[in-house]
C-alpha cells in the first residue's frame, strides 16, 4: 500500500517510493533520504509537526506539509 509520509504513525516503517517535488527531492537526497531506502517514523514534535524520521542511522526532521510530498510503501 502506498501512502504519503504525512499520513504515517509513530513507529511505522516503509520504503520511500518517490518524492513528488523536485527541489525537495534534491535536498532530501543530499541528506541520504533516497528513494528505495527504508524509513522509520521515529517521533513527532509537540503539535504533531514536524515529523522525525530515521533513515539508516540518521534522523531527519521534515515538516508535515513537505512530508505530504513523500510517497511511502508500507
Amino acid at each position: 500500500m502506498e501512502t504519503a509520509l504525512s499520513n504515517m504513525h509513530k513507529g511505522q516503517t516503509g520504503k520511500i517510493i518517490e518524492i513528488l517535488d523536485c527541489a525537495l527531492e534534491q535536498q532530501l537526497v543530499a541528506m541520504g533520504c533516497v528513494p528505495g531506502e527504508q524509513l522509520f517514523v521515529e517521533n513527532f514534535a509537540p503539535f504533531k509537526d514536524p515529523i522525525e524520521v530515521r533513515i539508516q542511522d540518521q534522523f531527519i526532521s521534515i515538516r508535515v506539509a513537505d512530508a505530504g510530498k513523500i510517497i511511502i510503501a508500507i
Binding site: A23, L24, Q27, L28, M31, P50, E52, Q58, F59, I60, S61, I62, R63, D66
Partner: peptide, 11 residues
C-alpha cells in the same frame, strides 16, 4: 527560490 525546512537531528 523554494526552500524547505529539513534538518538533521544529530545524535
Amino acid at each position: 527560490i523554494k526552500s524547505y525546512f529539513i534538518m538533521e537531528m544529530p545524535i
